[in-house]
Design a protein around this nucleic acid. Structure first.
Lengths: 150, 150
DNA sequence: TAGATTTGTATGTATGTACATTAAATTCAA
DNA sequence: TTGAATTTAATGTACATACATACAAATCTA
């Protein structure tokens, strides 16, 4: 991998900002590749995994579909259909909200929790393997990404 | 936007590496959102725009589909179908390679070049607008992303 | 040089993304 | 309190991604 210019044989960037955009897209693909590889045996996509983590973060309280959507990494993806997929696999429980019949209460199931637990160390090991940065560099990266979005 | 934890209301990351993965996915979505908005009026996706830039980088020499694939930001996407889309819009020229009939020579068309030119300043302005980093911070980010991939 | 292997591209399928639209329930306002 | 506006979720569609497979052309090998 290494330097972007060599990796994609492109060097005529408009400016460092344009290069950063390309670098982010390329690094995203790199990261998602590893995520997919790790999650595929468990029949989960990265965003499905993330939704399970969002639900676990609620500590047993049900969450609505729109609340999940707000917290998702990809704002444009479709929480409704993702929840449907997770339900089909028995990883979440979905039921009509008693106080507002438009809403749908979603909770992670016991199976969902068990799956997350099983994945935790694998994810941790995998992340450290393919992110070839020291802990302080990673913190620096996180700081820059946060600042990038303003 | 700002800090990741607030933006997606999630704070229980396994470690800074896991947070970096989430941060990259989220920032990717942020960036692609702006890219899509800018390119949509021109009926281009970010990867189609990138392919046009790859082709322009060849300075008039034809490129094969597999060579495009190698240089694409998303290694798993489908250069064949992207080229087909670009050809349908008249932005590239595609013809059978005379020396190897398996291969397909692809070149950017005059229209494609004109479109890239028209987009250049818009892209440049847009990037600087939504990437809220100084030039030295952007360079630092590029360095970290390059290093991340090893 | 015939048959096997490899290479380059296209196609098929399932899923995900982007965005518009629909439909039902709720809230607001006259 | 009734009709309009808003909210919540689901659905439809076009395109993109991920990955397997097919198929023709070229290359290798015996």
């Amino acid at each position: 991998m290494g330097k972007l210019e060599e990796a994609i044989q492109q060097k005529d960037f408009i400016d460092p900002y344009h290069k950063a955009v390309v670098n982010l897209l390329f690094t995203h693909s790199y990261v998602v590749g590893y995520q997919n590889a790790l999650l595929k045996p468990y029949d989960l996509s990265p965003e499905q995994y993330n939704v399970l983590r969002i639900l676990r973060g609620q500590n047993g309280n049900p969450t609505t579909v729109s609340s999940i959507q707000e917290r998702m990494l990809n704002k444009m993806s479709n929480a409704s259909r993702l929840v449907e997929k997770l339900k089909a696999k028995g990883l979440v429980i979905r039921e009509e909200c008693p106080t507002d019949r438009r809403q749908v209460d979603v909770m992670i199931s016991a199976e969902g929790l068990k799956l997350l637990e099983k994945l935790e160390t694998r994810i941790q090991d995998s992340n450290k393997y393919y992110i070839k940065l020291s802990e302080s560099e990673v913190r620096n990266l996180n700081m820059l990404l946060d600042k990038l979005r303003g």
